[in-house]
Structure formats: structure tokens, C-alpha cells
């Protein structure tokens, strides 16, 4: 994990966040947050987060979005959209979480103990390679690099799924897998590089 040490770096990160959010559909609604806490109270994993979703917006207001990225908050979001559909100010909070995850990955600001980014990476790797997610491949890579203990824990279930034909060993490659690669290359070429 890289660390933001200077005020200028923090300010830059904050500015990128604001710019991205404002360009998202309905993104500017973040400005009308009442800090009512309906999001945090509705979050099924909020109790695991260093700071709840409400505090994400508080940090945005305070110009301290780096405070959020230091913790595990965004990596505990399951994308259940409870906060989004309940928000009285119509703020698409789940989309804000995605934006923060993207920033964390882009700027290498991932806390050491967060495992979700690795899974995200292996998922994308699989899709980039085959055009579809090969669950078995993604799982084995994740276990190999992040959590060996998962093997025995999931062993029995894995065997049962395998026996039922629900865990194929080989991947299906789509014909247009080059197109997925091209899309990725194109999007990458459009992105602003990290300074």
C-alpha cells in the first residue's frame, strides 16, 4: 500500500474523487446529504466497517476522503444497494463505494489486510482471458495467494459441487474474447495516468 504523506497528495486525491463523482449520473446529489444515517443504519456490514457510509460523505465534505481509504470501509461493501434505495436525498451511495474502490486500486491505497481487491483482480483476469468468469480458476488463484485455509474449509462443498457438475474444471472461451481485450485496451488508453 502506498501512503499519502503530503497535503498536496491528499488534496489531489480528493479533487479526483469530486470530479469523478460529479460526472456520474446523479452524482451531484452527494451535496444534499442530511447526514441522517439511514445508510449506515441500513448497511448489513456496517458493523464491520471502520467508518459507515454516512461518514464517507462526511469525509467528502471535510475534504478528507483519504481518511476513508485508510480503513476497510469500502472493501466491506457488498453492493446490496440498501443504502441507495433508502437514501432520503437520493444519493447513489453504492456508486460512491465503487468510485472509492476504483480510486484505491488506481492509487494503490489498499490496506494490507483487505482481501477483496485480490478477488476483484482474479475475477477480471478470468473474464479478460475467457470472456466469462471461470469460477473455479478464480477461486483457486485466490486461495493460492490469499487464504490457504480456505481449501480445507471448502473442500467438502467443492467436492459435492464438482460431483454435481456445478464446478467445471475447464473454462468456456467466448469467440469474441479479443473484443473484451480491445475494450480494456481502449478504456485504458483514455484514462488519465496517476501522476
Amino acid at each position: 500500500m502506498a501512503e499519502l504523506t503530503t497535503t498536496a497528495q491528499k488534496k489531489h486525491l480528493h479533487e479526483v474523487f469530486c470530479k469523478d463523482v460529479m460526472s456520474m449520473p446523479e452524482g451531484s446529489k452527494i451535496k444534499q446529504c442530511q447526514q441522517c444515517g439511514a445508510c449506515s443504519g441500513s448497511c448489513p456490514t456496517g458493523y464491520l466497517m471502520d467508518r459507515g457510509p454516512r461518514e464517507v460523505i462526511a469525509a467528502f465534505r471535510a475534504g478528507m476522503i483519504d481518511e476513508i481509504l485508510k480503513g476497510n470501509t469500502i472493501w466491506m461493501c457488498t453492493s446490496c444497494y440498501s443504502c441507495t434505495v433508502r437514501c432520503p436525498a437520493d444519493i447513489r451511495i453504492t456508486d460512491l463505494m465503487y468510485e472509492l474502490k476504483r480510486l484505491a486500486i488506481k492509487y494503490d491505497l489498499i490496506p494490507r489486510d483487505a482481501k477483496a481487491p485480490a478477488l476483484t483482480k482474479y475475477f477480471i483476469d478470468s473474464v479478460q482471458k475467457h470472456g466469462r468468469n471461470h469460477e473455479t480458476e478464480m477461486l483457486s488463484k485466490f486461495m493460492a495467494t490469499k487464504d490457504w485455509s480456505l481449501g480445507p474449509k471448502f473442500g467438502v462443498m467443492g467436492m459435492k459441487l464438482f460431483a454435481a457438475g456445478r464446478m467445471p474444471l475447464t473454462a468456456t472461451d467466448i469467440k469474441g474474447k479479443d473484443e473484451i481485450r480491445k475494450l480494456a485496451e481502449y478504456v485504458e488508453s483514455k484514462e488519465v495516468a496517476v501522476p
Partner: peptide
């Protein structure tokens, strides 16, 4: 200080709250 997130019936399994309503709210 917080807008209540939801109101549910407390689980029958916990004697101390049995029969109660649970108000989930963030104390902001």
C-alpha cells in the same frame, strides 16, 4: 440523532428482548 433505518420484531431466541420491537438507527 439519526433517521431510523428499520423496525423489526426482535428474535424469539433472545430472552431479554423477546416480544420487543427493535429500532435500528445510527446514532450519528
Amino acid at each position: 440523532r439519526g433517521r431510523a433505518a428499520e423496525v423489526t420484531a426482535a428474535s424469539k431466541r433472545q430472552a431479554e428482548t423477546e416480544g420487543k420491537l427493535l429500532v435500528t438507527v445510527e446514532d450519528t
